[in-house]
């Protein structure tokens, strides 16, 4: 008799699906045949050695890679069944928000930082804006710390606060998916844990994909884990994808085992 885990599993609708997705920087193939399905309202962590294409894949999901002229892709990435590469890119980025490695608030007031996205999408009504800013800051667990200083520059906040401001800024455009590229790597441990807790709360409303080079963080903060590695020609592929509890206790692949137990290379 095999005894399985005690955790309940609720099947989620799939939100993002990559099918035979390839990506090239000029002649260099950075991603090879990526196939993966990410469920809605879940947190998917992407881990793997550096340079194996984690960020590249993440940036493919909101087409930020297109800012680099040499990038070519093939295969498809579907969101709610629709190919994102045939959608309008501005619309897509409204639905798929992004938080970066280093906190990057604009040199504007806290209020204007959060209101930036909604304003860009045409929201002018002051009352609605104020409400939205408050809700976003509250959801990003920052409201109580800044509610009296909304006119202060976002750059005057601490690193951890800045990162939460950036999360609030992303939330304010009411996306469905939030991509995070090593969002806590520039933060101290307490700020890091705050962000992780925050992410747990956010998954009720959003689907979250987070790149991290911190294995413990992936184990703590995610529901699913995607392990990337690269072939000898340095192109990245998915070694294994599964529930985080399985990946970190009983991975199927030797490469995963070696990587997560720190015996890689």
């Amino acid at each position: 008799m095999v005894i399985t885990s005690l955790e309940e599993k609720k099947p989620n609708k799939s939100k993002i699906i990559a099918r035979n997705f390839d990506l090239f920087y000029g002649d260099f193939q950075a991603l090879k045949d990526i196939n993966v399905t990410m469920p809605q309202n879940s947190i998917t962590a992407i881990i793997g050695p550096s340079g194996c294409g984690k960020s590249t894949f993440l940036r493919s999901i909101n087409r930020m890679n297109e800012l680099i002229p040499s990038v070519k892709t093939s295969g498809e990435i579907l969101m709610d069944g629709e190919d994102i590469y045939t959608q309008d890119v501005v619309e897509l980025r409204k639905t798929v928000g992004m938080v970066f490695q280093r906190p990057n608030p604009f040199p504007k007031s806290i209020f204007d930082n959060v209101a930036y996205g909604p304003r860009a999408h045409g929201l002018k009504n002051k009352n609605i804006l104020e409400e939205l800013v408050e809700k976003s800051l509250t959801d990003a667990a920052l409201w109580d710390e800044v509610k009296d200083d909304l006119h202060k520059s976002g750059l005057a906040l601490s690193g951890g606060q800045q990162q939460r401001l950036c999360i609030a800024r992303a939330l304010a455009v009411e996306p469905q998916v939030i991509l995070m590229d090593e969002p806590a790597s520039a933060l101290d441990p307490i700020a890091t844990l705050k962000i992780e807790e925050l992410i747990q709360n956010l998954k009720k409303e959003y689907t979250i994909v987070i790149v991290t080079h911190n294995m413990q963080q992936a184990a703590r903060a995610s529901d699913y884990t995607m392990v990337f590695n690269m072939y000898p020609d340095r192109s990245g592929y998915i070694v294994e994808y599964g529930e985080t509890s399985q990946i970190f206790t009983n991975p199927r692949e030797k490469t995963t085992e070696d990587y997560i137990s720190g015996r890689f290379g």
Partner: peptide
């Protein structure tokens, strides 16, 4: 102007022109 401002603005679904006028030029 740090590139991260451009990425953040575009990542929020702002257009290029909105990014230039809204973030880059003021900075």
């Amino acid at each position: 102007v740090p590139d991260s401002y451009r990425q953040a603005s575009l990542g929020l679904g702002a257009t290029k022109w909105q990014t230039v006028t809204g973030v880059i030029l003021p900075t």
